[in-house]
Design a protein around this nucleic acid. Structure first.
Lengths: 113, 113
DNA sequence: CCGTTAAGTTTTGTTTTGGAACTTATGGCA
DNA sequence: TGCCATAAGTTCCAAAACAAAACTTAACGG
């Protein structure tokens, strides 16, 4: 089964996953909630490749989660901001953050004395 | 960047995604919360391939989200149940379900008259 | 003119995934 | 006894997605 087929699933969780169901997409949203909006900011902060980033941003805009906004006219530059629909994913992010804080402590690898 | 590298990320959301950050994993968890526990149940309900399912279950057990439990001795049969750690992902699932219900209505394709 | 910035796009090679068939161990039944 | 069914995987191969790095476009600033 392909993930695009999930968008008509009977289960609302599955339909949600058809939009945000990969790790990079959630990281983009995290950045948005932290106030980032620019392509370069997303690329640097998340560590994903520009290739994948461009693809995910396009998807999120198509789905109405983000809006592509002209923020500079010359040179033409666009950034990405949460729509109302995107903003309403905040509770899911907050739940995941809480879980990560509690259950996924950072194991720091000691590489030097 | 590979997704395993996310497990030591400074951000708790990223660390959470290192465990549950793909669409199939969340669907397995949804099934668990719906009371399913068997391999065949997961395979049929989610539509994922058995191949991927086996891999994801193994990951979730390694991460302590699910527990592999012997439920029949002869023939030896195992199923999968949520641990306390897994149980605590429920708020995230509930948030995603709420979002899906509100923002991802089912578009039914009318194929017959 | 020349280097820099920002938002992508392209290219190439590796990994992951999808789909389907196969395996193993046992139970029930004729 | 022999045979079919069940459940939980595993194996194989082709197709799709991804990673890394270089390239493009357009304007700016000195």
């Amino acid at each position: 089964m392909k993930w695009s087929e999930l968008s008509d699933n009977w289960c609302p969780v599955a339909r949600t996953l058809s939009v945000v169901g990969d790790r990079w997409t959630f990281l983009i949203l995290r950045d948005c909630f932290l106030g980032r909006s620019k392509f370069e900011e997303f690329a640097e902060s998340s560590g994903m490749t520009r290739h994948i980033l461009a693809e995910r941003l396009k998807r999120l805009v198509e789905e109405g989660v983000l809006e592509r906004r002209l923020y500079s006219n010359a040179p033409k530059r666009y950034d990405y901001v949460l729509t109302e629909k995107g903003e309403e994913l905040r509770p899911a992010l907050i739940a995941m953050r809480a879980w990560g804080k509690k259950h996924m402590p950072i194991r720091r690898t000691v590489s030097e004395s």
